[in-house]
């Protein structure tokens, strides 16, 4: 019991110190390593899709497949809930 606690404490300290080290080595905010894609979206999204909201143009146009998956996940969850409560709600 006691050795288990000691092992757990050492592992926790190791893990926490690694997290601290990596937190101090992070890049500054707003300076990503690769920014070609961001620059492309900011420069061309308004012309290509005609939407002022660039986030929506990415979600519904450039990465529409992702949104299709999200909508399908929601639909499946609702189907499961209806099937679960089928007997008890009229």
């Amino acid at each position: 019991m006691k050795t288990k606690k000691i092992i757990f404490g050492i592992a926790f300290l190791l893990f926490f110190s690694l997290i601290l080290v990596s937190a101090f080595q992070m890049r500054p905010f707003g300076e990503p390593v690769l920014s070609e894609m961001d620059d492309y979206f900011i420069a061309n999204a308004q012309q290509e899709t005609g939407t002022n909201n660039v986030v929506t143009s990415i979600v519904f146009d450039y990465r529409g497949f992702d949104t299709l998956g999200e909508a399908t996940v929601l639909f499946t969850a609702i189907c499961a809930i209806i099937a679960l409560f089928r007997g008890v709600s009229k």
Partner: peptide, 20 residues
């Protein structure tokens, strides 16, 4: 759509507002 900061036109966006 006009490029840059603009108040926005409702009649732009193509398929995006319909999908919304």
């Amino acid at each position: 759509s006009s490029v840059g900061i603009n108040p926005g036109d409702m009649n732009t966006g193509g398929v995006v507002p319909l999908m919304n």
